[in-house]
Simulated scan of single mutants.
Amino acid sequence: MAVAHKGAISFGLVHIPVSLYRTTQDTSIAFHQLCKDTHERIKYKKYCAHCGKEVHSEDIVKGYEYEKDKYVVMSKEELEEIKTEKDKTIHILQFVKLEEVDAIYYEKNYYAFPDKHAEKAYELLRKAMFDKGVVAISKTVIGTKETLLALCPDKQGILVKTLFYEEEIVEMPKDIPHPKTVKAELDMAKQLIQSMTKPFDPSLYHDEYQEKLRKAILSKVEGKEVVEASSKKETISSPMDLMEALTKSLATMNKPAKRKAVRH
Rank of each mutant, 00 (worst) to 15 (best):
V72M: 15
V72D: 09
V72H: 11
V73T: 13
M74S: 11
M74F: 15
M74L: 15
S75H: 12
S75I: 07
S75P: 01
S75A: 11
K76P: 03
K76Y: 02
K76R: 08
K76C: 00
E77A: 14
E77P: 02
E77L: 12
E78S: 09
E78F: 09
L79M: 13
L79R: 05
L79G: 02
E80Y: 02
E80D: 07
E81N: 13
E81V: 08
T84W: 11
E85I: 07
K86S: 05
K86D: 05
K88W: 06
T89V: 09
I90D: 00
L93V: 05
L93I: 06
Q94R: 14
F95E: 03
F95H: 09
F95V: 02
V96F: 11
K97N: 13
E99D: 15
E99P: 08
E99F: 15
V101I: 15
V101P: 02
V101W: 07
V101S: 04
D102I: 14
A103P: 09
I104S: 03
Y105N: 02
Y105I: 02
Y106N: 10
E107F: 15
K108E: 11
K108R: 15
N109L: 13
N109C: 14
Y111N: 04
Y111D: 00
Y111E: 00
Y111F: 14
Y111H: 12
Y111A: 04
A112V: 13
A112S: 15
F113C: 04
F113E: 08
F113H: 12
F113W: 08
P114T: 12
D115R: 10
D115Q: 11
K116Y: 06
K116T: 07
K116H: 09
H117R: 11
H117K: 13
H117C: 00
A118Y: 06
E119F: 07
E119R: 14
K120R: 13
A121C: 01
A121V: 01
A121L: 06
Y122W: 07
Y122G: 02
Y122P: 00
E123Q: 13
E123I: 06
E123P: 01
L124E: 03
L124Q: 05
L125Q: 10
L125D: 05
R126I: 01
K127S: 05
A128S: 12
M129C: 03
F130E: 00
D131L: 10
K132E: 04
K132M: 11
K132P: 00
G133Y: 04
V134S: 08
V134Q: 13
V135N: 02
A136M: 03
A136E: 00
A136K: 03
I137K: 08
I137M: 07
I137H: 07
K139Q: 04
K139G: 00
T140W: 04
V141I: 08
V141Y: 04
I142W: 08
I142T: 09
G143H: 11
G143P: 06
G143E: 11
G143K: 12
G143S: 12
T144C: 07
T144Q: 14
T144G: 09
K145D: 00
K145A: 01
T147F: 00
L148P: 00
L148A: 04
L149T: 04
L149G: 05
A150C: 12
C152Y: 12
C152N: 13
P153G: 10
P153T: 10
P153A: 10
D154P: 05
K155A: 08
K155L: 05
K155Y: 06
K155I: 03
G157C: 10
G157K: 14
